[in-house]
Simulated assay, not measured.
Amino acid sequence: MNKVISEKPKLVNELNAYEIPTLTTIYNSDLQINDQNDLKKVINPIEFIKVGK
């Protein structure tokens, strides 16, 4: 860590200033559930993953 800081002294300030952007979509799909159809789109993959098939 000391080596990295000595080579790039501004890095710590850059990291402190960095803000993780808020996710609103993933794979071009909204992360908001508006109705039953949206809910099914979320539940089906979850069940698929649980079963492993």
Rank of each mutant, 00 (worst) to 15 (best):
N34P: 03
L31T: 10
I5G: 04
V42T: 05
F48M: 01
T24P: 02
V4G: 00
D30A: 14
N37K: 11
K10L: 11
V12S: 04
N13M: 06
Q32D: 03
D35P: 05
L39Q: 13
Q36T: 12
M1A: 08
Q32L: 15
D38R: 05
I46T: 11
E7Y: 09
E47H: 06
K53D: 11
V51L: 09
N16F: 05
L39M: 10
Y27H: 02
I43W: 09
S29N: 15
K53W: 03
K8Q: 09
S6R: 07
P45R: 03
N13I: 07
L39H: 08
L23E: 06
K3N: 06
M1I: 06
V12H: 05
I26C: 14
P9Y: 05
N37T: 13
A17T: 04
G52P: 04
P21R: 06
K3Q: 14
P21E: 11
T24N: 14
I43L: 15
D38C: 02
T25V: 09
I26Q: 15
N34V: 12
Q36W: 14
N37Y: 12
K41P: 02
S6N: 13
L15D: 06
K53E: 13
L15R: 04
Q36N: 12
P9K: 07
Q36P: 00
F48Q: 13
L39W: 13
I20T: 11
D30E: 08
P9W: 01
L23R: 03
L15H: 00
Q32R: 11
K41S: 14
K3L: 08
K50W: 09
F48K: 15
T25N: 15
E47G: 00
S29W: 02
D30I: 00
I46P: 01
E19R: 14
K10A: 12
L39G: 01
Q32G: 10
N13Q: 07
I26D: 13
A17G: 06
N37H: 15
L15Y: 08
N28P: 08
I33C: 12
E19C: 07
N2T: 10
L39R: 13
A17N: 10
M1L: 12
D38N: 03
I43E: 04
N37M: 07
P21T: 10
D30F: 01
Q32V: 15
Y18K: 01
S29M: 03
V51G: 00
N28S: 12
K8P: 00
I33P: 02
M1F: 14
Y27V: 12
L15P: 04
G52M: 03
G52L: 06
N44L: 14
I20F: 12
P9T: 04
K41A: 09
N34Y: 11
N44Q: 03
S29A: 14
E14W: 04
E47Y: 12
N37I: 09
P9V: 11
N2W: 00
I20Q: 11
N44D: 12
V51S: 13
K41G: 11
K40S: 09
I26N: 13
N2Y: 07
K53T: 04
E14C: 04
I5A: 03
L11D: 05
N34I: 02
D35S: 06
N2M: 01
D35I: 09
I5C: 00
E19Y: 01
K40V: 09
Q36M: 11
L31Y: 09
P9H: 07
